[in-house]
């Protein structure tokens, strides 16, 4: 099976400007990132703020322009396409914001917002569009009467559903979900996650699931990629990543999740310090300044992703058994 999304060596740098607009450096938000997404799977993308996971999603979507590398969607390098052709690809590739409700124009009625993608990308007649919109609205569990309302007239949870309906009207193949549960209460989060699953079944979707919440990622995803300061440090099947993490950073992330009923993590949480300034990265491995396992080689050589079974980890000591 060939991947639906194949990212190779993708880089995206944000310039840092000093006084008088002179460029004094760059934040390497994405640095030589490669990953594949298979049709039908849910790939989780986890990491802390500033690790580049959202930049990756937005670069794939064309909101940011890449500084290097390829983004192959269904075999076509979409980063190299001219803008008009790139816009046409968006039909199959959709992006859902942290709060999909915020993606609705406050001055447009719900109905108009739902028709819009079809007007842009299809030549359907008004009746056909109306039928399609009604189908989608039913799929996300909203009454048809909502079509005549403005976004501020419905609840936040319903806005989310409308936002999702909007990206599904075109029947995309891949949906990038960017922090879809951030800021939600657990009881609402549970219903939203269930909705994601149902929609995936109903529309045969592939998800790229960007989140900082490892418990949610563990529940939802088939595979997980862990990012740290613009690089993928570990990638592999969810169960293996959570049971035998190979990279010390992955281990620290897992150690930081509170486990109800288990041992208190605060008693012996070992990761010290905070991530270094992304504009001024340490030499060699980016994690070495906080890593308890760091040795001289880590400062000299940046480790590449190496395979250990189905898992890949970018650590000089990845093949060691975790302590």
């Amino acid at each position: 099976m060939s991947p639906i999304l194949d990212i190779r060596g993708l880089s995206r740098h944000f310039p840092i400007h000093g006084p008088f607009g002179r460029q004094v450096g760059a934040v390497r938000a994405l640095d030589d990132v490669s990953l594949q997404v298979m049709p039908g799977e849910i790939l989780g993308l986890v990491g802390e703020s500033g690790c580049g996971k959202s930049t990756l999603g937005k670069t794939v979507m064309g909101i940011h322009r890449p500084d290097g590398g390829e983004i192959r969607f269904d075999g076509v390098d979409i980063a190299a396409l001219e803008p008009r052709a790139q816009r046409a690809v968006r039909k199959h590739l959709q992006y859902s914001y942290q709060d999909p409700g915020a993606s609705l124009d406050p001055r447009w009625k719900i109905g108009r917002s739902l028709h819009e993608p079809l007007i842009i990308h299809t030549t359907l007649s008004t009746e056909e569009r109306t039928r399609r919109v009604a189908d989608i609205l039913r799929a996300v569990g909203l009454p048809e009467g909502h079509l005549d309302l403005y976004p501020h007239e419905i609840s936040g949870g319903q806005q989310r559903r409308v936002g999702l309906a909007r990206i599904l009207t075109l029947h995309p193949k891949l949906v990038i979900l960017d922090e879809p549960t951030s800021g939600l209460d657990v009881s609402v989060q549970a219903t939203v996650l269930t909705l994601f699953r149902e929609l995936r079944q109903a529309f045969n979707l592939t998800y790229m699931f960007i989140s900082h919440d490892l418990a949610v990622v563990r529940m939802m995803c088939d595979r997980v990629a862990v990012m740290y300061l613009g690089r993928i440090v570990e990638i592999g099947p969810t169960d293996q990543i959570f049971e035998t993490p190979r990279h010390p950073y992955t281990r620290s992330l897992l150690a930081a999740i509170p486990r109800i009923g288990g041992k208190r993590i605060t008693v012996d949480f070992w990761l010290k310090g905070e991530p270094p300034d992304p504009g001024n990265l340490p030499s060699g491995c980016r994690f070495r300044t906080r890593c308890p396992r760091a040795e001289a080689v880590c400062a000299q050589e940046e480790p590449a992703l190496v395979a250990i079974g189905l898992q890949h980890a970018a650590c000089h000591f990845a093949s060691e058994k975790p302590a």
Binding site: I63, R87, R90, Y95, Y97, S103, D105, P106, I120, R166
Partner: peptide, 26 residues
């Protein structure tokens, strides 16, 4: 910078469409 503008762009709307139908009314 509003999300609904960014998402209209991500949806594949042309610049003219975004400017006239989304930005101008707002």
């Amino acid at each position: 910078n509003e999300i609904f503008i960014e998402s209209a762009i991500a949806l594949g709307a042309s610049p003219a469409r975004v400017m006239i139908l989304h930005i101008l009314p707002n």
